[in-house]
Design a protein around this nucleic acid. Structure first.
Lengths: 282, 282
DNA sequence: GACGGCGATACCGCCCGGGTATCGCGCCTG
DNA sequence: CAGGCGCGATACCCGGGCGGTATCGCCGTC
């Protein structure tokens, strides 16, 4: 199977529409139909159910969609990492570290300092990204190493090392009745009709069903809370640098959040090893 | 990058010889040279150092070799798993479980029994393979789930669940002076001049340097030990069904061996989940 | 200095991937 | 029920690229 075929299939499987997929791929629709047809013939199975109205994935098609995405990520990673190795060989070598914007700020700063103090340290490019984006960057080679947060991020498929564990706090508008309490139970926070929990986007950009406001980043979140339209439960470290009009109240029974450093299991980079060493020594 | 290019590059990088690589790929040498050249041009870096005598990998070339193997495994896995999903949809569905031949026999039998008793259990094809081969099968999709042994097998990149932990024993010819001892220290066994430890092949089929006899499977090993030409340190469970002319002596300070069940992190198969459930409930 | 091994280059033919035009088939609609 | 339309499949053509053969250029080695 060629990557071209996989790319074509993923496009159709995502669009569920040959015409739109072809447009997205920048080709005409007939070659796309042929390519998918050939794939199905070679695999000996129907991948897409062509109904009179639109297209649907078959069982094997769903399997191929998942596997093809992983395979294409691996191919992309191969290209990116080779390119970066070429850069490192001639110019300034660097590693890319992916971290969630607005999280672990202090820990990140300490890590960068500690690593920079090591002999032979190379430049560290920090890729700040949205929630849950880090694993994607690691998988497709845009990042070499990442800071993740269990249980929120999916650490499956990576080597990890625990760095830090912390409880969570509820962020409420200052002046809200609950904000004076010494601590809160998780059930008390999640059930507030006047302050719903916000909805974060899935990796594909869509939002889960529900009634809370949609947020995409930390700024939107704090603003919504300040407006009295939402509340949130975040790791303790999120209370540093909190706006004046917001209050943090501990939520002892919320799951503890562990910050981990993660890297692709077959990584051989000395820079990655150095970062891990520096991180675990913090 | 197309998988064809990756396959070509891996062939040359492994053979370190354009002619032989071309032969292995079933094409002529000139198209191969051109393909590699094109790859290098597009990546903007030299991948192979063409010396007067043979070919050597550059730094970026070594990176690409590692990444390309992973990517090609992922593509193979996509094809195999789709094919198997197609089979499962029409005929008898099955999972493939990879296990090291001659290891964990009893545990494997119990696992298969326990899983078969579950409602909705599907057929389990057991792929017995050589030491260290299981991870390969998992990576390229020939297997859906595997029994691995830490610290021998590399569990990186898989989800795992510990099943069983055991000490190790030394296998000696009956009648050897040490065979009467109640236990042995690891250093005593590894330093025997008359009974060297055998050498196991690497995944690529080559043997590590050293002086011990080369073995490829358990039968060869027991035969060598019986002949008084080698000894071995193996998990306790390896003493079940031992030949009469061999003796097992505990080695308490050898690292404990943990049998784990492992599966690809993005696996969605209910059969895999059922096997894991059955295994952890043992 | 002739030879041989090996990768690069030159050149050619053909297949396949991509394009346009058109068809076939449901489904909605007046 | 006819006509229109949306959408994927099919027919057919064209060009680029992949693979083939022949050959060159460069080094070692007798």
């Amino acid at each position: 199977m060629e990557t071209r075929e996989l790319r074509y299939f993923v496009a159709v499987a995502e669009e569920l529409h040959f015409g739109r997929a072809a447009q997205r791929l920048g080709i005409a629709q007939p070659p796309l139909s042929r390519a998918i047809g050939g794939l199905e013939r070679r695999l000996g199975t129907l991948l897409l159910e062509r109904g009179s109205r639109g297209v649907a994935l078959t069982g094997p098609g769903a399997v191929l969609l998942r596997e093809a995405r992983a395979a294409l990520d691996a191919v992309d990673a191969a290209e990116r990492r080779t390119r970066r190795a070429a850069l490192a060989a001639t110019g300034r070598p660097a590693v890319v570290l992916a971290a969630k914007a607005g999280a672990s700020g202090e820990l990140l700063a300490k890590l960068l300092d500690a690593y920079a103090a090591e002999p032979g340290a190379v430049a560290v490019d920090v890729a700040l990204c949205g929630p849950g984006e880090q694993t994607r960057l690691l998988h497709d080679g845009r990042a070499d190493i990442a800071l993740l947060h269990r249980p929120f991020d999916d650490t499956a498929g990576f080597d990890t090392e625990d760095l830090h564990s912390e409880g969570q706090v509820a962020i409420l508008p200052a002046g809200h009745p609950l904000s004076a309490r010494p601590y809160l139970r998780l059930a008390e926070v999640t059930g507030l009709p006047d302050l719903p929990l916000p909805r974060w986007p899935h990796p594909d950009g869509t939002f889960p069903d529900g009634s809370g406001p949609q947020v995409r980043d930390h700024t939107q979140l704090t603003q919504l809370i300040a407006l009295g339209r939402a509340c949130a439960v975040v790791p303790e470290s999120g209370r540093t640098g909190l706006r004046e009009d917001l209050t943090a109240v501990p939520v002892p029974d919320a799951p503890r959040v562990t910050t981990v450093i993660a890297w692709p299991p077959h990584s051989r980079s000395t820079a990655v090893a150095g970062l891990v060493r520096a991180a675990t020594a913090l």
